[in-house]
């Protein structure tokens, strides 16, 4: 599969996994307006990368450039070691792409459409029937083979769109907002599928749904006004700028000063008659000490809930700090 490039930046993923996609310093203008400024991305086998951002942040443009549907004004893209500009045939055969609007020919049947997509992506003639059947099974389209695409519901059309993107078993799967417009159970199915695909190949998906990032992505890059402003694992992103703490419920609460006196506690705030929010320093959690004290002095501790900043807060915090 050619040579793989060593990652220059270190992510939490094991280095053993080969890099499937690397993009360096992409920029793109539409007329005089520069919409993408020096975006670099790296994707490894077995990874799901979420590209997060507001509407108009440049996510779709970036993804289109990664698939070769749009040429960047500067920068370089490599798919499994093949340069997208110099060896487009080799590189594109290893990409599966689902654009924002699934590219479906409404008058074709699902089987014919998928067979066409397979042939377009250079699947050998003898293997086409097999991969169509296999992909249909994967995407939950077993009973829809003979149906005309135009008659399918939105959710099923989306599945056909995903099926089209994975029919040739590409190393890199690029999905532009794959769950938009689906109902909750369809969203769950498609997320499960994306997670599976991420384990077997590698996936980049763009979204503005934070829940999606939380549930399926290994890593997050946040785009804002055409720049990547933040990139880390999605677990770490959740802790961005997060002050550790918890909310404790005490049925017979003591005075605030008594709580304040516990080692490690930075700030105590009374939320209601029995609830207190306690913020503490990062390296010492006073929870155990507090519970021990509560048992000793009869404060009747009821529950202790760690504070979790939602991904939403984090996202707003990151994009705001960039704008400011």
């Amino acid at each position: 599969m050619g040579t793989y490039h060593n990652p220059q930046t270190h992510y939490y993923m094991p280095d053993a996994a080969p890099t499937t996609l690397s993009a360096r310093n992409l920029s793109r203008r539409f007329g005089q307006r520069e919409v993408i400024h020096g975006v670099s991305l790296k994707l490894k086998h077995g990874e799901v990368l979420g590209l997060l951002g507001h509407n108009g942040a440049g996510k779709s443009t970036t993804l289109q450039m990664l698939t070769g549907a749009l040429l960047p004004h500067s920068g370089q893209i490599e798919i499994c070691g093949f340069d997208l500009a110099r060896q487009p045939g080799q590189a594109k055969a290893r990409i599966g792409f689902l654009p924002e609007t699934p590219p479906l020919y409404r008058e074709m049947s699902v089987d014919n459409y998928l067979a066409f997509a397979a042939r377009l992506h250079l699947v050998p003639r003898g293997r086409i029937a097999g991969s169509v059947a296999e992909t249909r099974r994967r995407c939950g389209l077993q009973d829809s083979g003979k149906k005309i695409i135009g008659t399918l519901s939105k959710g099923y059309q989306q599945r056909v769109g995903i099926a089209q993107a994975i029919i040739h078993q590409p190393e890199v799967i690029i999905l532009d907002e794959p769950t938009v417009g689906l109902d909750p159970s369809q969203i769950r199915d498609i997320r499960t599928l994306i997670r599976e695909l991420g384990d077997a190949y590698s996936v980049i998906l763009s979204t503005h749904l934070l829940g999606e990032v939380e549930s399926i992505c290994d890593r997050v890059e946040i785009m804002h006004h055409g720049r990547i402003i933040y990139g880390d694992s999605s677990a770490k992103m959740q802790q961005y700028g997060h002050q550790p703490g918890f909310i404790v419920t005490l049925r017979a609460p003591p005075g605030l000063s008594e709580l304040q006196a516990i080692a490690g506690v930075q700030q105590v705030e009374q939320l209601s008659a029995t609830q207190f929010r306690i913020l503490h320093v990062i390296d010492a959690n006073p929870g155990a000490a507090l519970l021990a004290l509560a048992a000793q002095r009869g404060w009747q501790a009821e529950q202790l809930v760690p504070l979790q900043s939602s991904l939403e807060d984090v996202f707003v915090k990151i994009t705001e700090s960039e704008t400011a």
Partner: peptide, 14 residues
């Protein structure tokens, strides 16, 4: 118009 051109543009065809 139907945005199916992307399928051809992103596929390994010139």
């Amino acid at each position: 118009r139907n945005q199916t051109l992307t399928l051809l543009m992103a596929a390994p065809v010139s």
